[in-house]
Design a protein around this nucleic acid. Structure first.
Lengths: 342, 342
DNA sequence: TTATGCACTCAAAGCGCTTTGGGCTGAGTC
DNA sequence: GACTCAGCCCAAAGCGCTTTGAGTGCATAA
């Protein structure tokens, strides 16, 4: 069933039917009701491609995810983010389009999406410092919102980020209050903007109390379970091992925990651990007192909000860019305790 | 730049340019080269919507994921599956379109995708037993491939699945060989087809040796970390606790492991654990001897293959459906050992 | 009565592509 | 020399929608 057929059944012109369907005021209320009824009876919806061709819009949002050998994006948080964004999209009539591309071809992907008119906007994931994709998207004139943000760019653009710096500063303070002095940082790849900010927060807290951040206690890498494990082992086997770990992700924290176990150390007693927790649906829930003390912020909620910001931006392209900073909460679990007396 | 403009620059008709671009034989090789050169110089690609309108195809594949309060689909494996499928799509010129919908509206979503002509095919996730979506998609005439499969349906359709039954049978045999007799099963939701098959494998192995599967030792639920933890605690606190656990996912296995620790039990010594491992990129790697003994099968590879099967199906709709059964490998880690003597 | 609006409705153009059905050359055939 | 036949290329229709510009009929005002 297409527009023409439907309008034939109604003895109306396609014009009128189209207007009735799209809520234009030129059509009589009674006519509109007739049209709506017929549309639902014959199970009609407009062909999206034809509609798009006529309107110049595609009602789709693009997410380009680099297919890294380094797995930064195809990571555990991805599913939750997508779920959040998808909720918003479907309630606004947008489709979500995901493009998986080789790492070095991300720019081509954006260009191609724009050229072929496949999407109306883009959500930019995993920004690095001075990320070149941001000026590129601005050049292309493709509306976009960044999940996270990129330091060192002069431009003004829309983003939503967690206050990573403050979160890690608070976490570090918390450990210092407990008497810890040798605190290790197991961070994500520090080319990633969020990781750099976390380290900054960590260092700020230390220097504010007159300690200096020992570079030997700061490791960074892909946030896998194995990375947490090997990093922690390496640190624990040093002559002056840390008494506390600040870890950038739940998954790595699982690795750290395994390392503690390997060395016969009790988490929360012999060694404290704080992790960042993205509030992933499959990791939370259950216990009264969570396993990990954590800085927590829901990635799913971030997805919802970023999507909404982008849709707003598409609707009113001339509005100034918006920035949203979500604060992470610090929830106390069983992985932290006072520093052991030496 | 559009076709008309490009052909004007070349002093050719749009017809010829289109043919040159699409590899039709009616155009002279030299002309084709000229066209191709101009296209790349002017950075031209055809408008996807117009192309789709003209050809009747959309070059997009749909994935409908139910936004459960129960999180079966928005789960850790999703990212990896998507990455695999995305690889295949992008090398074949397809886009991936993801629709997040309320649980009970999945059928509407399929209908709508079909009606509006948004996708050329569908990948069906997380099939349940006698899943009604399969006959629906057949009715709609929308090409599809199932990741997993659904028991109890008369129809013949394309699917790719892991041999869950055999995998869990082998894992159970392995535990029996080690002398374990009280083996617990911590399974996914048994409305899910894969979970039912895993239990079948588990029971088959037991009965084949003359033991009977104790229903009291079989729990099932959402495969979260918390679920693994509470299930294991409950079982361990019984008068005759299991000496081994067979767990349906890595995430739940982490929970089981935590429960063992809570009770002061050593994994691989006091209690054995085997888990199914979807070979997620962020959980693997690192150690020589993996933490968990596991039945392993790469979800990413599954994504690649399912996508390819669907594309083949779209290209040749009359070919008979294909079924692919991937065998899981049983890799021995440090979580299993001989049953403790009582 | 004629003009002036208003409320509806429609025909047709256009979005950017593919594809059908020729048309025009020039080389090969008898 | 007339005829066929590739080999190239083109004009135009059509995909299914939106939107512009133009009625048409009818009530109201002048």
């Amino acid at each position: 069933m297409n527009l023409k057929e439907l309008s034939a059944k109604l003895n109306l012109s396609p014009t009128t039917v189209s207007r009735a369907l799209n809520g234009y005021p030129e059509v009589k209320e009674e006519t509109r009701r007739r049209v709506l009824a017929a549309a639902s009876r014959y199970d009609y919806s407009p062909n999206a491609r034809a509609q798009g061709l006529a309107t110049g819009r595609s009602q789709a949002i693009g997410h380009v995810i680099p297919l890294s050998t380094k797995h930064e994006m195809v990571n555990p948080i991805f599913g939750d983010f997508i779920a959040g964004a998808g909720e918003t999209y479907s309630s606004h009539g947008y489709e979500m389009l995901i493009s998986v591309v080789e790492d070095d071809r991300a720019e081509d992907a954006y260009r191609s999406l724009k050229r072929r008119g496949v999407v109306d906007g883009i959500i930019l994931h995993g920004p690095r410092m001075e990320d070149p994709r941001i000026p590129l998207l601005q050049d292309l004139g493709l509306p976009f919102v960044v999940h996270g943000r990129a330091s060192g760019l002069p431009q003004d653009y829309s983003w939503l980020d967690v206050n990573n710096r403050r979160a890690f500063q608070r976490a570090t303070d918390f450990l210092l209050d407990l008497g810890h002095r040798r605190i290790a940082l197991i961070n994500g790849l520090e080319t990633m903007d969020f990781a750099a900010r976390r380290r900054a927060g960590f260092e700020t807290a230390l220097t504010a109390r007159g300690f200096n951040a020992d570079p030997a206690l700061q490791l960074s890498g892909e946030m896998t379970e194995a990375m947490g494990h090997t990093s922690a082992l390496e640190l624990l086997d040093r002559p002056m091992p840390p008494t506390a770990f600040l870890v950038s992700s739940m998954v790595s924290a699982m690795g750290v925990r395994r390392a503690l176990e390997d060395r016969g150390l009790r988490m929360g007693v012999d060694v404290s651990v704080i992790t960042h927790d993205d509030a992933l649906s499959y990791f939370t829930g259950g216990d009264d007192v969570p396993l990990f003390t954590a800085t927590r912020s829901s990635v799913r909620e971030a997805g919802r909000q970023v999507a909404q910001m982008l849709i707003d931006r598409i609707d009113t392209p001339d509005a100034p860019p918006r920035q949203v900073l979500m604060e992470a909460e610090l929830t106390v679990g069983r992985s932290t305790g006072p520093a052991p007396t030496e």
